[in-house]
Design a binder for these strands. Structure first.
Lengths: 249, 249
DNA sequence: CGAGTATTTGACGAAGCTCAATACCTGTGG
DNA sequence: CCACAGGTATTGAGCTTCGTCAAATACTCG
């Protein structure tokens, strides 16, 4: 379902950060889209245990991967923004070992797994780029493990704010040290693995220390250096700069 | 550096669990090995910040991925056993955003990144298998996030024991509900993100509740059902059974 | 045996959780 | 325009899990 304005623009924009894309490769991506879906806040986009035959590319909105515990606690393991191929891995891994939920209205482009297989047959360079995309996801999971394991509550929040700022900036949805993050403290607490009460206190602590402001859904970073230091933030895992190894030898 | 006995046997054994490998594909993998290295316990196999030009395939031994915090705390984000391609991702992601340490004597086969690129150019099916390999790693990271975020200390240990048992069983290094895991409680505490003291108490708790025994480096699972229940263990993420989508359409 | 490392135990403190109540905010109907 | 309802944020108090500090015991290997 290609059009004059490529629907995959958010993904293309992101992939261009890693390596140049030929017009042909961009066209292949654009033609891979089989349809567009919309999800309301709270709806599950992909459900644990199912084996989808397509992958979902987030065109706009905020989504989260999560697992439920036996007692019903929801652990969010990553957040996703426009341009993220939220379940690209479901192409090779089935059934899903986790769910993906819309944390706001989400527009999704669906890409059939058969098309992805065809890409791996015919477009090795694009294949490596998509592979890289999943590897960056993995790196983010590793970083979240680090945060969960070794950082204190306020540090963890600081780290998350740094991460979301850089990622949103990469897709031009952050500027002047501020960005919109339309999530409640309840959802935030599911990312940080804290109680809502404690998350609230941690947010207030960062406000009191004057490193961020957070009103409504608008976060403003008032002191990047202190925030990054507090969260032990090192952006290496986000692979913002151009990466080598993607061009065929 | 191929030989009559393929050096990549541990990896091939593992990949066969996901899809059949043609003799030619096995040969490609075997010929991809450029050399063999050995590391002593405690040595870093790959160092954060570097950009290796080869990836490391673990032939024997135990290794761990980790990140260091500012205060010097080491967070281990995954454990690796024979057959694991411990830094396959360094092929596309550089520089390394974490290090890999030998947690015992490790034999490593090195595979040049140029060879991996060539594989993606010529062997799409093998490419998908290797990609899958990294996706399973990512799924494991997600699961560890869940454990770190939502499980209590003793549950987390229970989960880890379940995971290592199944993974070691897959490569025929576990039987009769028991296996060798040559790590100290200090290293274990770095996986679980606990203090050594607390890890010790948690180990004793599982012993006292008679779900495992742990003497020297020999772990025996005395009650799998209770252990799995305690750790909320669901093996889906390990992709033990055969997976679809690997065979070209 | 003895040094070094690993495990175990006890006592106390800190980070964060639960319960419970209050304040706030936004949209809706009267 | 106001009052209300339902969700969200905030605050307080007591409690649990786990960390820290310190010491004792056990194990390993030369």
């Amino acid at each position: 379902m290609s059009s004059s304005i490529p629907t995959v623009l958010p993904l293309v924009t992101k992939l261009r950060n890693y390596a140049a894309l030929s017009p042909q490769e961009e066209q292949v991506l654009d033609e891979a889209v089989a349809g567009i879906r919309e999800y309301e806040s709270g709806q599950d986009i992909v459900v644990e245990g199912t084996s989808p035959n397509h992958s979902s590319l987030l065109l706009s909105g905020l989504a989260g991967r999560f697992n439920m515990s036996v007692e019903g606690k929801r652990q969010i393991t990553s957040l996703h923004i426009a341009g993220d191929f939220v379940d690209l891995h479901s192409f090779l891994i089935k059934p899903m070992d986790h769910s993906i939920v819309a944390l706001g209205t989400c527009r999704i482009a669906t890409v059939p797994h058969a098309t992805l297989t065809a890409i791996t047959e015919q477009h090795p360079r694009l294949t490596r780029l998509l592979w890289l995309n999943t590897l960056i996801d993995a790196g983010t999971h590793r970083r979240w493990e680090f945060c969960l394991g070794t950082l204190q509550g306020h540090q963890h929040l600081a780290h998350l704010v740094c991460e979301m700022y850089l990622r949103l900036k990469q897709i031009s949805q952050a500027d002047n040290n501020s960005f919109h993050l339309p999530i409640t403290q309840g959802v935030l607490s599911e990312c940080l693995a804290q109680s809502v009460v404690h998350t609230n206190r941690v947010v207030q602590q960062l406000r009191a220390e004057n490193v961020i402001s957070w009103e409504r859904d608008l976060i403003t970073i008032k002191d990047w250096d202190r925030l990054a230091e507090m969260g032990e933030f090192d952006p290496t895992y986000l692979r913002m700069p151009v990466s080598d190894g993607l061009t065929a030898a």
